[in-house]
Design a protein around this nucleic acid. Structure first.
Lengths: 299, 299
DNA sequence: GTTCTTCATATAGTTTTTCTATATCGTCGT
DNA sequence: ACGACGATATAGAAAAACTATATGAAGAAC
């Protein structure tokens, strides 16, 4: 691209526009400057190119024979750039990029997105499923939903709901569970990567994780849930993970008690950038969905 | 193209180069500025776009997901511009555009151009055949060859040869012409648009145009010559027009006397622009060809 | 033919942008 | 821990671009 170093880009743009529009006045209008400025740009660009691109007629600028070839190519190039800018800025306005953990995305968010889409057809949602904590100031992500203690620097945090844990299992298995101590007699499926402990839920009943039987172990909470659904054991679940499975009866919660895991769901946005409409709309919708979920779960 | 008004072009170029090269240092090298300048350009462009194009990693700049789409388009656009500039300046270096009168072009210049081409294969010649006087500063014409008194403002003029007139006709007709007065007894073909008068040639012999017979008239000197070749009459010709026809024996000059028409051939170039190599090469060749023609004609 | 309008351009001064140079901070590899 | 590399902030300097005005040239209108 070294050829471009010899000619100033604004000059090329002036050439292109003047070739298309024919007079300095119209060119100046399109570029948003005075005609004199355009004249200077064109003259300078012609000098840098070492070629005369326009003949000056009493009615404006007429491309020379060899100038026409240049102008055609310049037009093609600038059209491409224009389209690039249009798409890029149009996209940032209309596309909401959300960073969420894969499990939350697949088990809770994605199944509900269709409703958001219906509510705001002009906003395109792009889900960036990853476990890394992202900085909305240093990526193209508009907002994140993360589980944790809320101890993240340099971002704006908004508490959504406390994570509460409770056992779930297939309905057949639930028949064996009259009281918490019965958990010792059924298989347990575990998420090997989870930082949640059964003690969180057992302690209030005076029980401990050591009494539980061994069982299958998975590297992902979603896989655990699938195992629980097929009756392979009881899992320690939480609201957003289990809600849809509970609602459709694939699993049941044999005990009503839910206990705080110590973590919470937070909405993460930029601490510095002003908030566009698409973000506030999503926040509103998200809170309403959470409230609706919680309400149904509490019944 | 109004989208381009919202983003400064140098910023887009910085984005494109950084996306391709990965670090500020390399980008700065390509653009010929300091890394700090590039950093500012990129940040500014991102703000104008309202989008984050790069994630800053410890190893440089990595395009975001949505940034990649933009960068791909920007690259395409700038490649096009780069090619445009390359071709335009390459062309001006390698293409010599010459403005000449159609008659001179067809009867003298074009038949000799093959030799110039052989001498300088790297220089492409483009002939712009027109009768209008061209200003090399206001068109893409590099040089002109014009007949006149040399009284043209704002251009550099270089005398090539005096225009000298003399009668030519088909060999059969020449048998009837022993002395100038015999011209009264043969048909005369005239160029209706010419500003040359038979008196120019007749006066020195004490003769006058009134004694000449009427004959066919044409709107173009080349057509007159064709008529003379086919024996339709005698025409008042000049060196560059008749040379090739004389050399091949299609016409003859029944009298050796040649008289100055008062006009001359001039090489016209820009008075202000510095002269590129292609022009000086053409001048050298042109003078040599003229000398060779004159020498053969004098024999 | 004269006047008017429509163009482009020259010039000078101002405003704006861009650039450099330096310092700082973060991350990685040794 | 230390050095290397990379991005950014900042302030001052340099360069570029812009405005406003005047000028000249060429058609168009009366």
């Amino acid at each position: 691209m070294k050829n471009l170093n010899r000619v100033h880009l604004n000059g090329l743009r002036a050439l292109e526009a003047a070739g298309r529009l024919g007079t300095l006045q119209r060119t100046a209008d399109e570029l948003g400057v005075s005609p004199g400025a355009v004249s200077q740009q064109i003259i300078k660009a012609e000098r840098q190119l070492g070629a005369t691109i326009f003949e000056r007629t009493p009615r404006g600028l007429a491309p020379t024979r060899s100038g026409s070839a240049l102008l055609a190519r310049l037009s093609a190039g600038f059209r491409e750039l224009d389209k690039a800018v249009e798409l890029a800025s149009g996209q940032t306005e209309a596309t909401l990029t959300i960073s969420v953990a894969p499990v939350f995305a697949s088990k809770w968010l994605v199944p509900r997105l269709a409703r958001f889409r219906k509510l705001h057809p002009d906003i395109r949602v792009r889900i960036d499923a990853s476990t890394e904590l992202i900085d909305p100031d240093r990526s193209d992500v508009d907002l994140g939903i993360r589980v944790g203690t809320g101890n993240w620097p340099r971002v704006k945090k908004e508490f959504l709901l406390p994570q509460e844990v409770f056992p779930v299992c297939a309905p057949e298995l639930a028949l064996l569970l009259k009281e918490p101590a019965d958990l010792a007699n059924v298989p347990i499926v575990r998420d090997a990567n989870s930082n949640l402990s059964w003690d969180l839920w057992l302690k209030p009943f005076g029980l401990s994780e050591t009494m539980l039987a061994a069982g299958d172990s998975f590297t992902d909470a979603a896989l655990c849930l699938d195992a629980a659904i097929t009756g392979q054991g009881v899992m320690l679940a939480w609201q957003t993970l289990a809600f849809d499975a509970l609602a459709s009866g694939l699993v049941v919660a044999p005990f009503r008690e839910r206990f705080h895991s110590g973590f919470g769901y937070f909405l993460i946005t930029s601490a510095t950038q002003s908030e566009p409409r698409k973000i506030s709309k999503f926040r509103d919708w998200l809170k309403a969905e959470i409230a609706a979920s919680e309400e149904r779960l509490a019944r």
